[in-house]
Amino acid sequence: MTAIPVVIGRRPPVIDRAEASDLHEADAASTALIDTHGRVHRDLRISLTDRCSLRCTYCMPEQGNEWLARSSILTLDEIERIARVAAAAGVTTFRLTGGEPLLRADIVEVVRRLAAIESPSGPVQLAMTTNGIRLAELLPALQEAGLHRLNISIDTLRRDRFHDLTRRDRLEDVLTGIAAAQASSLRPLKLNAVAMRGVNDDELVELVAFAIAHDAELRFIEQMPLDAGHTWDRAQMVTREEILETLRGRWTLTPVPGRGGAPAERWVLDDGPHTVGVIASVTAPFCGDCDRLRLTADGQLRNCLFSTTEYDLLPILRAGGEVDAEIDRMLRSCVRGKLPGHAINDPSFLQPARGMNAIGG
């Protein structure tokens, strides 16, 4: 089966079967997933669903969403199979995302299966990004199943703002989930907040103080052009420098060295031990050290959050034959096709057709 990418919004390029085969043979000599720019890929973000219990304005419309067909959603066995092949190729971290991953009925078994996988360097690390609404209910089972780390999204601490931003009155559920995470042994615990002008930019210090009180690290995220309605406006984005300037009014910030491929830059607050992070994908891209691949809930591999190209694993998984070898081949084709950067700041940049909920966080 030829590794042929599916491209959103334009006619897909076709990879010649012989060329793909030759390149795969060359890659097979080295287990690692290394792209043409020397980046080694060790992180796979796995989206479990495009559905969510919130309707955040920067992510998806309140109504009229076109959900993925249930028949196209990867089964538990299919997710595990892809994950095992990825781990054999050197992936050491899986992060479960959505939509909202806790909406998946088999979420505990997904965690159990993936936590049992080993890469050539040892057991994988299993993380999850969630809105926290069902977390208090499910956390004991998730922890017992093998979950290692948690990121919880919380953009505001004010009930009226939360309702306006998410179009749902669920702040108390999120806060209960965060409290449950604080009481657990899962560390490091991280809280994610998208900084938005005129929405929550007056809460930046308050959000960091809240994270400290819950033994967590606040990570601010620059708002990115990933909303399903394509209404992103650069002028409304709170930049990395604005975030840092605000925080310096309360704390002394000391950079934490050794970022590696992590998306967040981190700073120690005063003399520690608490830290804060900023993910500045727009104003300070970290593409040169990116080590991530993404798998959508419907089986599409993506080599960049902003990619307009997808590599379809679904036909491979459901056609039979040498499935593992074909998954490996597609992984390597996807990695080889990765560009040097996302080009957000280039005039030719095209926003992905999918919204963040369909791509996976």
Rank of each mutant, 00 (worst) to 15 (best):
I344Q: 08
D312I: 03
R10P: 01
V278F: 05
A69Y: 09
I107M: 10
P101D: 00
D324E: 12
T2F: 15
P315M: 13
G321N: 06
L244F: 06
R219D: 08
A319Y: 05
V282S: 05
E19D: 12
A20K: 15
I117A: 14
T246W: 10
T239D: 04
R10H: 12
G337F: 07
V14F: 10
C287I: 05
N65P: 05
L68I: 12
G198T: 04
T92L: 09
L147N: 11
S119Y: 11
I279T: 12
V40W: 07
M196R: 06
L138G: 03
P123Q: 02
V6T: 13
D164Y: 13
V205L: 14
I152T: 09
T275A: 08
A145M: 02
E118A: 04
A105T: 09
I46Y: 01
R234Q: 15
G132Y: 10
A235C: 06
P285W: 12
G321A: 02
G355K: 01
F162P: 09
E62L: 15
D35S: 13
E19K: 10
D160N: 08
Q63I: 09
L96Y: 02
L76K: 07
P61F: 03
E80F: 06
L165S: 09
I46E: 01
R294S: 03
R17H: 15
D346S: 05
E322A: 15
L68A: 09
V174M: 09
G360V: 00
M224W: 02
E118W: 08
R17G: 12
L191K: 04
S184D: 02
T93G: 01
A343H: 07
Q63M: 10
T308F: 01
P12F: 00
L244V: 10
A26R: 15
G9M: 04
T231E: 15
V268M: 14
K190D: 07
M196N: 03
V6P: 12
